[in-house]
């Protein structure tokens, strides 16, 4: 409800192209940054303090985890496993994106396909990834496609729901306008359909990807193919908490970098036409 209200009361548009940042705004930002840093300091301090109270293998100190991360990167098979995971992820997510978009387009345009796929989509959105991981590992054994199929099955639905919304958001009145002027189909797709659907595609990528890399690690762990998942399992079996945490930070770091540096930057370039209303 709230999001719609925001849209309904379309905010006043600033005409000036590059608004000067007012001074109190800058001061506010600096204060915000200060407290943000304080948060990190507090967190790392608390972690170090608690770990000093316990046995080092129960909660290794931040420094120990950092040292472990350096050690892990130095291993012979580190890059082999990273690339195996990236390969699963790249193939699986590309497939999920293509299949999910195709289904989403069909669902957005036809009531029949909407009804046909609706239950599948809903199921894969709500069923725990473990279930898919297990069934895929069972069907495919140690084959490389186990993780890939699991990725497709779990993340296509996140792409689909967003693409469906995007297709339904294609502005009919602009398409009619293009018809009236006899604008050819390819021009129409490039200039109306894609820009209208783009924000939904970004959301689709964002959510699909967030699920995809997690399920990749999970299936690798159960399926014992090469990859990050199997490395985490080894650390677990050796009861090396620092090792598990080290891999976790690699994964989370990778995900955040993809989200912040790659996706957000692309988005900003894509959406320059938007009024800077939600400053």
């Amino acid at each position: 409800m709230a999001t719609q209200d925001v849209e309904a009361t379309a905010p006043a548009v600033r005409i000036d192209s590059e608004p000067e940042e007012p001074r109190p705004e800058r001061a506010r930002r600096q204060r915000y940054l200060l407290w943000r840093i304080a948060g990190y300091v507090l967190f790392i301090g608390a972690w170090a303090f608690i770990s000093s109270l316990t046995e080092p293998y129960i909660l290794p100190s931040p420094v120990a985890v950092l040292r472990k991360m350096v050690e892990v990167v130095g291993r012979d098979d580190f890059w082999v496993n990273i690339f195996a995971t990236l390969r699963h992820l790249a193939i699986g997510f590309t497939l999920a994106f293509v299949i999910g978009s195709a289904i989403g387009i069909a669902m957005g345009r036809s009531a029949y396909w909407d009804a046909f796929f609706r239950d599948y989509v809903m199921l894969t959105l709500t069923t725990p990834g473990l279930v898919f991981a297990l069934v895929c590992v069972m069907i495919f054994g140690l084959l490389d496609i186990g993780p890939i199929v699991a990725i497709v099955l779990t993340s296509f639905a996140h792409v689909t729901v967003n693409v469906v919304e995007g297709v339904r958001a294609i502005p009919r009145e602009l398409m009619d306008m293009a018809t009236a002027y006899g604008v050819p189909r390819s021009t129409r797709i490039r200039n109306i359909v894609l820009p209208a659907v783009a924000p939904f595609l970004f959301t689709a990528i964002r959510y699909g990807f967030a699920i995809a890399w997690k399920i990749t690690a999970l299936t690798e762990l159960f399926g014992q193919t090469d990859g990050v998942g199997i490395q985490i399992r080894v650390e677990f079996l050796f009861f090396d908490i620092a090792g598990v945490l080290a891999w976790a930070f690699f994964l989370v770091g990778f995900a955040l970098v993809m989200e912040r540096l790659v996706l957000q930057r692309l988005e900003r370039r894509f959406f320059r036409w938007r009024p800077k209303a939600f400053a």
């Binding site: 009145e173 602009l174 306008m177 200039n191 109306i192 820009p195 959406f271």
Partner: peptide, 9 residues
Amino acid sequence: APRLLPWRS
């Protein structure tokens, strides 16, 4: 209504 593409100049 004007029916301009909001994402094009």
